[in-house]
Design a binder for these strands. Structure first.
Lengths: 193, 193
DNA sequence: GCCATTCCTTCACTTAAGTGAACGGGGCGG
DNA sequence: CCGCCCCGTTCACTTAAGTGAAGGAATGGC
């Protein structure tokens, strides 16, 4: 299980055995069941997550309805905004599937950064890369229609369409479940000619 | 002019005089005219920007049409995704107004990080904070309608509505200029009762 | 295995955004 | 100063998303 985590880190730098041992000794892993909640709106948290197996999602409750805004699957990391801002969370985080996570809190990360200054560099690179990706994703969202977004998801993340319920996908695409149904029917009809 | 930059940095940490002098000696400032272009699609660049006066925007050209996705005004920083990824830029960056920027490239930043390791921490905090803000903004965009986005902009960034042309605002809101006109007319009509 | 609940789809209707065209105003350059 | 072009707005029409309702499939709990 640690191998996945190290593979992820290896994208940016190669760890020494000492560093790996330090991480292994931290006992970061946590197993969760489908539907389990990691964070609720209004709560304060210092925890960051790294998904080893499964899928988690962030969602808001707007006018009593769930609005899913992001999914995180294998090899993806999430530090919720509330951890950075020190404010109560605006959103929920819960498991789309049975999930295994690596969980670490701000205090632990500061401790590690102190012991191994290279981790500071690692975190900076990771944040910068995520920020760049987030910008591109946001730009792509703004410059495309729901149908284009769906088709693009079909190509870039076909797994999501399989493992995630339609109504969660719909809000992820910025539309209602009914519109997603219709949109898919439209695409299929067009494929037939 | 440097004061603005130091004030921005002070959000995260207080610099020593030595550190400030190092920054002052770098000659980072650059003046640009309205309409000037900083980066074109297809170009490679290592430059990051910090806006001291004025306003810059990122935009894509889709089917021959400009699609503005972001604005950066006083005290806002931008590291384009292409700088992080080392890939050619997908978008353009140009000045909405006469603008004064602080410009620094990756090499310079690495050099500074080497001389003053605290800058590494500064950069990490900055990236993390921007990432958190970007997430929140993206989530808000997904969970609201064009009209709600406009009204929210009216409250959070009223200056943008004044200084930015309508057709650029429109794509920023994810719609066409005609729709923005109509949307505004609709809001005004509703205000009258 | 059965029931209840949730989820997905479909339908009819409403509302809002996209499209193409036209007009008027303002700014910029000649 | 004049003319041209760009911009913002408006209009008529098309297309797609929102809404409310209903039916059927799938899921989970007992």
């Amino acid at each position: 299980m640690h191998d996945e985590l190290f593979k992820f880190i290896a994208r940016h730098m190669t760890l020494t055995e000492e560093e790996k041992d330090a991480i292994r000794s931290m006992d970061l892993f946590r197993s969760l069941k489908k539907g389990d909640t990691l964070l609720k709106a209004g709560e304060r948290s210092k925890d960051s997550y790294f998904v080893l197996r499964g899928c988690i999602r962030t969602y808001y409750i707007v006018d009593g309805e769930e609005r899913t805004t992001a999914f995180f699957t294998e090899m993806e990391a999430l530090t919720p905004p509330c951890v950075i801002n020190g404010t109560p969370s605006e959103h929920y985080i819960s498991c789309v599937e049975d999930t295994i996570l690596s969980v670490s809190d701000t205090d632990l990360e500061m401790e590690v950064n102190r012991r191994f200054p290279r981790f500071e560099v690692l975190c900076r690179m990771q944040s910068e890369e995520l920020l760049a990706r987030q910008r591109i994703a946001f730009d792509a969202f703004k410059t495309s229609s729901p149908e284009q977004r769906y088709i693009s998801l079909l190509h870039t993340r076909p797994d999501l369409l399989q493992r995630v319920p339609q109504h969660q996908l719909a809000s992820y695409l910025g539309i209602k479940p009914q519109s997603l149904s219709r949109l898919r029917a439209r695409i299929i009809a067009r494929e037939r000619g």
